[in-house]
Write a protein that binds this DNA or RNA. Structure first.
Lengths: 351, 351
DNA sequence: CTCCTTATGCTCGTTATGAGTATAAATATC
DNA sequence: GATATTTATACTCATAACGAGCATAAGGAG
């Protein structure tokens, strides 16, 4: 009957558990039509689950990471409450919408594991907050999400990085597969992730794309991790793709989060967690566009949310904007009682 | 710093970690038009993450539970591989489709926690297998999923239990709320979970319903857990709802899994993991119906999967059935390259 | 007053969906 | 062997949902 970790005692330090658990928060806001994520600075050698705060900014090179905190096994009633607790303490943010994202537990995702450190599990959460008010004095800041995934922002048409670097690299990767069968496999994986070209790009497959790029050796993480393992990178690539990285596997976690949001937005009214109580329809649309990374047809968006019962007009108008003043709307909570899956129903493809 | 569990020492046995991690498998198959889940027998006092195998079947009353296994922090490269490993060892099953479901970590979900035991986290996985071949000699067996959720099977119309017990109880629960505000809150929660009546029942909200029923005190778990906590059940209910329970919070985990499958089936071609290589369209339809719990329109289902490009005919016919022989079809793998979200697109409501 | 900008209303063709009707090809029954 | 029964499969039809575009309204800037 399945004992955990065949002998809890076998792990690090003679008596340690061999496994430690941390909680991870992907906190998303949309400001200035840009989706943003809250990151913190950690010293270069910080263990993932925290550690002595090691005097941040004391000289050693710091990395950017997602906020991480502990579960107090004797105190926190649920994982989510634990997350809310330490996010409040760390950043001053009172989280609204929170959902569990995924639990990450690959071996060596914390490099210290190679030096006898414990296996580190992270239960990652996605949180949406309304504004960019970071109250904490902690070294946290809002970063544009597309800083980490430049290839995911199609609002201005196909990003040049996709055309110029990504697709050619993918094609080369498929071509250079060792053997016919491997080539077919790669072709299919590439087609699923990138939709065989600029057409058919599926906005939700953020994680598939990230993982493929990682595997192809196009990301700095690939080199970093291979070096840590004492191997040489899979296929030495001239230069990594543009786009910032994050410590540990946190860019992967962020990719998971972005994909989840893009999916969720279609069938649950989660956008409203990101806009003020009252908003113009354009603001709502821009928020959806920021997250989904594509442009939407204005009139149809209006029809969708208005006659779809997602919003109701307040009768009041927005002040101080260019052009004809827009009516302020608010979310119609009743819609969740009326329709099974009220979302904004993005088009399959952009444009 | 966040060491896990602020005071690793406080836990079980003086040196325990305070947190232990287990993996949980919800293994689903569909046989005889019935969705089934693999369960195992555990002695009444088994700790969730396993422990000394305590001689199964030695007299003490046994409970039914989901298969559970460990993560070997030094050996298993990923959580999913760990799961595949011990499922193979325990049951002989070679899992095909596997996806992570959710991580459960509420306090006291393992009752031994109250007696100083460690906090037990379970990372639950959903696995789909083609046939009901349980090779292992372990005390595992296939149970009909609706044995645990009789109110979720609407294939024969609204289940009598819904009409006769569930909805009346829900209405009473709303009515008896302490105060006006609480009543409104309950009304809304009930409406979301149960769709304000036999109409608008959303098949995917399995977990919402389970949790509401738990909270209402309509399940044996409510009483069990309250007793373990030394409290009295929230609102003493005459008799619990029909439907088998599972050990620990495993019925909740199963509810999560069923809801996930029902959602997934709509936009990913996962049904094909549950039928043989070649199948008739009726068989495919019955499998979808078994999972979604509703009946579908035969001709439209055919149109959906056939002209939708999900399947292709083999030209061969099924042998030995009543009526006109049906053509055998197979899954068209190419569809995942062609369409972004190929699923079977269930109707919002039944009938 | 005219142009520019944004908001909002409405139309139109296409596709998807829900519900049938009709016919075909087997086996079972008398 | 004719007929009923059962299941498969092909089509039709009305309606809803969707994608794209035209047209008009209501502000400010020049």
């Amino acid at each position: 009957m399945v004992r955990t970790g065949k002998g809890n005692g076998g792990g690090a330090g003679g008596c340690g558990p061999g496994i430690v658990v941390g909680l991870n928060a992907v906190i998303i806001a949309v400001t200035d039509e840009e989706p943003r994520v809250l990151t913190v600075s950690v010293p270069g050698d910080t263990p993932m689950e925290g550690g002595a705060p090691a005097a941040v900014g004391e000289g050693a090179e710091t990395q950017e990471a997602l906020p991480t905190g502990p579960l107090d096994p004797k105190g926190d009633r649920t994982l989510e409450l634990a997350l809310r607790r330490w996010v409040r303490a760390q950043t001053g943010l009172e989280l609204g919408y929170v959902e569990q994202l995924y639990t990450f537990g690959d071996r060596f995702r914390d490099p210290r594991e190679r030096r006898g450190g414990p296996r580190v599990l992270s239960v990652a959460y996605l949180a949406l907050v309304r504004e960019g008010r970071v109250a904490g004095e902690s070294p946290s800041r809002w970063r544009g999400v597309y800083r980490f995934f430049p290839w995911e922002d199609w609002r201005g048409g196909p990003p040049s990085i996709v055309e110029r670097r990504l697709l050619p690299a993918v094609e080369a990767w498929v071509r250079e597969a060792p053997g016919r069968a491997a080539r077919e496999l790669r072709r299919e994986r590439a087609a699923v992730a990138f939709g065989r070209g600029r057409d058919r790009w599926d906005g939700e497959r953020v994680l598939d794309r990230y993982e493929l790029l990682y595997e192809m050796g196009l990301l700095p993480e690939t080199i970093r991790d291979a070096r840590a393992a004492g191997e040489k990178p899979p296929e030495a690539v001239a230069r990594p793709l543009p786009g910032s990285s994050l410590a540990f596997d946190h860019r992967r976690i962020l990719a998971t989060a972005l994909g989840r949001i893009r999916g969720k937005i279609r069938y649950r009214p989660v956008v409203f967690e990101l806009v003020p109580e009252e908003f113009t329809l354009l603001r709502l649309q821009r928020t959806v566009e920021a997250l989904s990374g594509i442009r939407l047809h204005k009139q149809n968006f209006r029809r969708l949310v208005d006659s779809g019962g997602l919003v109701e007009g307040t009768g009041r108008l927005e002040q101080g904007s260019r052009g004809r003043p827009a009516e302020l709307f608010r979310f119609r909570r009743e819609v969740i009682l009326e329709r099974p899956a009220p979302g904004v129903g993005l088009p399959a493809r952009s444009r």
